[in-house]
């Protein structure tokens, strides 16, 4: 028990952020109409590409003097992350464009 409390204290900021973000996520998304299920999903999917920041940090501080496994995998992480971000936002926009067009 003491140990759990200890961890809670050490990571209190992280735990606060998680708890509040979950609430925020639920509040923001709830009651979304069925029409928007797909765009919402693919838009959210694109946001999960925020992992790209991790990829940038990782490759940004990788030693480039040799071609290491770390560098290669890091580059893959970057490419995958970008695919997720750019592809996700682009396809969402394309879908929403269709929705808009026919509303006239």
């Amino acid at each position: 028990m003491e140990q759990i409390l200890e961890y809670f204290f050490i990571y209190k900021e992280a735990i606060f952020i998680i708890a509040l973000s979950v609430f925020l996520g639920i509040e923001v998304i709830s009651k979304v109409p069925a029409v928007l299920h797909t765009p919402l999903m693919s838009g959210a999917n694109a946001i999960s590409g925020v992992i790209i920041i991790g990829g940038i940090i990782l490759v940004g501080h990788t030693d480039l003097s040799t071609i290491s496994l770390e560098l290669i995998l890091g580059l893959f992480a970057l490419i995958f992350g970008t695919l997720n971000v750019v592809g996700g936002f682009a396809v969402t926009d394309r879908m929403l464009e269709m929705f808009k067009k026919k509303k006239k």
């Binding site: 992280a14 952020i17 998680i18 973000s21 979950v22 925020l24 996520g25 639920i26 923001v28 998304i29 709830s30 979304v32 299920h37 919402l40 999903m41 959210a44 999917n45 946001i47 999960s48 590409g49 925020v50 992992i51 920041i53 991790g54 940090i57």
Partner: peptide, 29 residues
Amino acid sequence: IAAAMAGFIYSNQAMILGGILVGAAGMIL
């Protein structure tokens, strides 16, 4: 959720918040 976990590795609040938001949205759907 996986992106949020990586956010904790870098103590990057944008990654954590973005990741958890998507996690929650996915759970609602």
